[in-house]
Design a binder for these strands. Sequence first.
RNA 1: GGCCUGGUAGUUCAGUUGGUUAGAACGCUAGCCUGUCACGCUAGAGGCCGAGGGUUCGAGUCCCUUCCAGGUCGCCA
Length: 595
Amino acid sequence: MQKGLAGLKRTNYCGELTKSDVGNTVTLMGWAAKNRDLGGVLFIDLRDRTGMVQLVVNERAKDGIFERAEGVRSEYVIGIEGVVRLRDAETVNKNISTGEVEVVVNSLVIYSKSQTPPFYIEEDSDTNEQVRLKYRYLDLRRPDMQKNIILRHKACKVVRDYFDKNGFLEIETPMLIKSTPEGARDYLVPSRVHNGAFYALPQSPQLYKQLLMVAGMDRYFQIARCFRDEDLRADRQPEFTQIDIEMSFVDIDDVIAVNEGMLVDVFHEIMGVKIETPFERLPYDEAMERFGSDKPDTRFGLELINVTDIAKGCGFKVFADAEASGGSVRAINVKGGADKLSRRDLDSLVDFVKTYRAKGLAWVIITKDELKSPIAKFLSTDDVNSIIQRAGAVVGDVLLFVADKDEIVFDALGNLRLEIACRLDLIDKSKFNFLWVTDFPLLEYDDEQKKYVAKHHPFTSPKDEDVELLDVDPLKVRAKAYDIILNGTELGGGSIRIYDSNLQKKMFSLLGFSDEEAHKRFGYLLDAFKYGTPPHGGMAYGLDRLMMLLTGSNSIRDVMAFPKVQNASELMTNAPDIVDRKQLMELGIKIVSNE
RNA sequence: GGCCUGGUAGUUCAGUUGGUUAGAACGCUAGCCUGUCACGCUAGAGGCCGAGGGUUCGAGUCCCUUCCAGGUCGCCA
């Protein structure tokens, strides 16, 4: 039966005991990580959030302590009172922070016993994630998970302190909001009071933060939970956290400066890394041309080379056709690749680009006196020389070509570039390459829906000098949008917003909303804009992705306490689950089978 | 929805061409052990081989279906 703390009061944490505590009587509480029973003396490693310390019990100890200690198994929760003692030089354990001392136990209470845990509570567990997630409360006891969660807390604190210091107010926005069917799929919450009506969970606090600017709050931030009902990935969860920011009376440079300051603080406090500002800025078009990606990893080369003009006239139909249908032929030059990429490797790279809808990958190996390539016979000597010259290729290099629509060429080569860098170990892991990608297109054309869609979101302002193009050539209009990229990962993005209700109306109409529709969905925003709206703009970061980078994790799940698995369920609680008929009745909901 | 990888003891894995009673390590249980820290020694328990169906004299192994987990494409304004 439970017996409270049994008269003990904790005086110290396990991991914090040092030589300076020698001689002190301390009371410790925690989990028994290990019990080494040597017969006449036994050792227990006692663990808490801060680390571990070795307890010693001798068989001569009074009050049956030795017998009780012998019964202590892994993960029992115990409290002890004891005296800190210096270890003999030859028994010091250099592997733990408290290895120079140990605690001689004078009294011992077993607060709770533990079943044998399904996996070892240790650093670097190799246990299947399925098991770890089912017993997440045990997984979270492991030191590396505790470290991640603690670091996340610290990062949030740095962020809060930074924005506070810079005049931002932390303001909460609602979780039960109006659905906006634009963008990702919404999670819906049925209303009991309004039969047949639904709230949505926010995909982001976007409109509320803009309305806070209209409300004169001037500078807002929030560490906000967001929800998107889309398929999961290693770096995507259905609920995730954004560091969300909005500022009044600013343009791009102001927002960028504030955000660079935040990243400087975070990297200094959390990583002890001094990062240089201002960060490089790269226009979207250049990012795509050079790296085939709007979030380029600039820690290595392998830049894209456009050879469309040379390839269009060659005898290789695939190249000629790509040009003729408005696409392009582009290549990357793998320096010295002839020795590093076997024929088998090349074949696997062909398969690799196919996952990005490329129809194939042409390769050319440059040897001393000939080209080794399936397409060599289609290329004239002139063509070959021009390509080699443009690519700066020399003997031993391998050129890899994709020909298709630009979109596919960029996607395939952009990802191929990363794949090769990874395989050939070309990435300097010690680098932190921060980069702003700017001048995104405001709109994209969606072939399926046959209409324009917003690249960022419908509230993004066009660049001042491009506003006139809205009527003439909307796809040419560049946005006041910017993404922050670190080592090829998009940490966040933002934009300067439209603050003029007429421009906002025009934007909605370009996106194919009738006046009526725009009013129904976003009327409150358009109305608000009629009452004096400051120019404003902001930014949002994926906190989980940031923590993934800061902790060197491979998955976003390792920086979240209770993540969901790929089918969006939670293995510990088994959510989502069916609910009582009575609950559904109250909500006026009837389940219709999907089959 | 598509593609790829995996599922065998509590955990991590091995399991030959389809062939007797499915193995190892760690963990667990019991006993011994006074300086261990991956303690050691001795003994022992522990299996619906993800599930269902099929082929076969015989299936962990081959085939089909299905479930689960991971990665990824689509999707993610």
